[in-house]
Amino acid sequence: MALIDLYRRFKIPVFWTTLLIVYGLAIMPADRAPDLGAGDKVNHMAAFFVLTLLGRVAYRPVAAWRLATGLSLFGILIELTQAIPAVRRDASVWDWVADSAAILIALGAALIVERLRRR
């Protein structure tokens, strides 16, 4: 089986697995969570940029605004979970803003590439 065939077959499970990993990392105690070394907002943006691209590929027939809304709500879920004291994380509306900005940037880039490929 060629690599591209594996990709086509597993693009949806790859998206959902990545989403679960991002959630797990987001609720992991801050002192144990990996860091890209560029700050918390960069970590958020990187995670949601990748999730958006994977989601767009996995669910191309779904309207872009639906994917953006779903991922943005996922960002809110992360922040609500981080607000639970037992999780030992800090919730921030600015983290959600970073998530949403990354979603819009990634989705915009994906839509531009899709239009260029159609030509």
Rank of each mutant, 00 (worst) to 15 (best):
V93P: 04
I4A: 15
P61D: 05
R88F: 12
W94Y: 05
I84G: 11
L36I: 10
I27M: 13
R117C: 02
A98W: 05
A33Q: 13
L104M: 13
A63Y: 08
A101S: 14
E79A: 04
V62F: 07
R60D: 11
L53W: 10
A30M: 09
A47P: 07
L6G: 13
A47W: 01
L20C: 13
V42P: 11
L116T: 09
S72V: 01
G24K: 12
V42T: 14
A26N: 03
G70Q: 00
A86P: 08
T52N: 00
I112H: 11
A109D: 01
R56S: 14
L67I: 14
L111D: 14
A83R: 11
A86M: 12
K11Y: 12
R115N: 15
P34H: 01
L53Y: 13
Y7H: 12
P85F: 06
S100G: 08
A47C: 09
L6I: 07
G108T: 08
R9C: 10
R117Y: 10
D5L: 05
I103W: 03
A46S: 14
R118Y: 00
G24A: 06
L53E: 08
Y7C: 08
W96V: 14
R115H: 15
A91C: 09
A68Y: 05
D90R: 05
S92P: 05
A98C: 02
Y59V: 10
P85W: 11
V42Y: 01
A68H: 03
R32P: 01
I12R: 14
G108E: 08
V42D: 06
P13G: 12
R56W: 12
I84Q: 13
V22N: 02
A2V: 02
A47D: 08
G75P: 08
L73R: 04
